[in-house]
Design a protein around this nucleic acid. Structure first.
Lengths: 159, 159
DNA sequence: TTGGTTGCAAACAATTTGCATCTAA
DNA sequence: TTAGATGCAAATTGTTTGCAACCAA
């Protein structure tokens, strides 16, 4: 409800520095293509696909190829700079991590196809209580809700 | 914890009848291939893939093709006789519905690759409370937990 | 210098589809 | 009889990979 406050402290320069350090720490090289892909990911304020990322990265560096986008995405997700979101379609979405470590649930409006990221503060706790039933501890969890606009009683139209 | 009790009342004959009625009600034909696929789905006591289903359906009716399996799965899921489970791999799992309408969460043990179906009685309520934040009402929800065996403090081994 | 990185195009793999043939009702 | 269903093989589609050229360190 107050994204301005949540994002006020987000610093893309810090994120970029984290990315460079992550690459160096893993013995990976800092290439123009990887930097362009990073910038494109953080330019997006919404969910994006690999294809979206390719288009935007190319606006920064014409030489970026689809293969490099697909090879760079795992680096971005492993470093936790980007979150991967799979809502069961035939392609994945990604979202730049901008601070806020509160777990999110995805609500997919099936009528508009829009995906909402909603704070789900109890999700981690709930996932833990469920995993413990089979002697496991959570690594990650996701809650996805397929939903539609709330219908008033007197709405009778279909499709 | 007590699957025997939970399944004691499950009646495959009733499910088969529901399937036949569903087909008829939709103006679809009752074919040997569809019946074989139904039987194969309910013969499985665990999650299965489309490919698993093809193999088992062919043991019942040699003429079943992969295309028919893929064309029949949506009928089985729409009729709610089978649940579709997408845990973010490149293929989907399915599970015959055997009574019990309690919502389930999936816990995926990343070390054994096993998928556990765990009762998650608050899931529907929680999903509703989240969807309502953006003025939507849930159609369905899923909670998935990637997890690993609980590590004792003194376990220091990695991978 | 040189081993990691790249673009390209071919390869992959799960799923879908066009079409001639078949069959349930 | 005939509209719906089928098997087959080709097509589709997001993603991955082999390889020779390239370039960051």
């Amino acid at each position: 409800m107050n994204p301005v406050i949540a994002n006020a402290s987000f610093d893309i320069d810090k994120a970029r520095e984290t990315f460079r350090e992550y690459l160096t720490g893993k013995g990976l090289r800092i290439t123009n293509q990887r930097l362009a892909i990073f910038e494109a990911a953080f330019k997006h304020s919404e969910h994006f696909t690999a294809e979206d990322l390719l288009v935007h990265a190319r606006e920064i560096d014409r030489s970026v190829s689809r293969a490099t986008v697909y090879r760079t995405l795992p680096i971005l997700t492993e470093s936790e700079l980007v979150r991967e979101i799979d809502v069961g379609r035939d392609y994945k979405f990604y979202l730049a991590s901008r601070g806020s470590h509160i777990e999110k649930a995805q609500v997919v409006d099936v009528e508009s196809d829009k995906i909402y990221e909603i704070d789900a503060p109890f999700l981690e706790w709930y996932a833990r209580s469920i995993a413990e039933k089979v002697g496991l501890e959570p690594i990650s969890q996701r809650l996805q809700v397929q939903a539609r606009p709330i219908r008033r009683k007197d709405d009778s139209k279909e499709g």
